Amino acid sequence: MTKIIFKLLGVALIATIGGAYYVWQQAIQVPEEYSKANTDEKIDSQSLPLQPSQITERAAVTKQKISAPIERARSGQKVNVKLSDRDLNNLVVAKLATSQQNKQIPLGIKGIKTNIKDGKIYTGAMVNLDKLTHDGQPGSQTAALAKLTDKLTFLKGRDVYIGVVGKPTLTGDRIEFASDTQIKVGNMNFTIAQLAENLGVSAEKLQQTIDLQLQQQNLKVNRIDIRNNGLEIEGSKK
Rank of each mutant, 00 (worst) to 15 (best):
T2W: 09
I4F: 03
I4K: 00
L9A: 06
V11W: 02
I14A: 11
Y21G: 01
Y22D: 12
A27V: 15
I28C: 05
I28V: 15
K36S: 11
T39I: 14
D40M: 11
I43G: 01
D44G: 00
S47W: 08
Q54G: 08
I55A: 04
I55N: 00
E57W: 06
R58F: 04
V61A: 03
A68E: 15
P69W: 09
R72A: 15
G76H: 14
G76N: 12
Q77V: 05
K78E: 15
V79I: 14
S84P: 07
R86W: 03
A94L: 03
N102Y: 03
N102H: 08
N102Q: 12
Q104C: 11
Q104P: 02
I105V: 12
I105Y: 02
P106T: 03
G108W: 11
I109H: 04
G111C: 04
I112F: 00
K113T: 08
T123D: 06
G124S: 08
A125W: 01
V127T: 09
K131A: 12
L132N: 08
L132G: 06
T133Q: 08
H134M: 14
Q137D: 12
L152F: 15
L152R: 09
G163S: 09
V164F: 01
G166I: 03
P168H: 03
P168R: 03
D173G: 15
F177E: 01
I183T: 04
I183R: 01
G186D: 04
N187H: 06
I192S: 02
E197V: 00
L199Y: 09
L199I: 07
V201M: 06
S202P: 00
D211N: 15
D211P: 08
L212C: 06
N218F: 12
N218Y: 11
N222A: 13
I224H: 08
K237V: 10
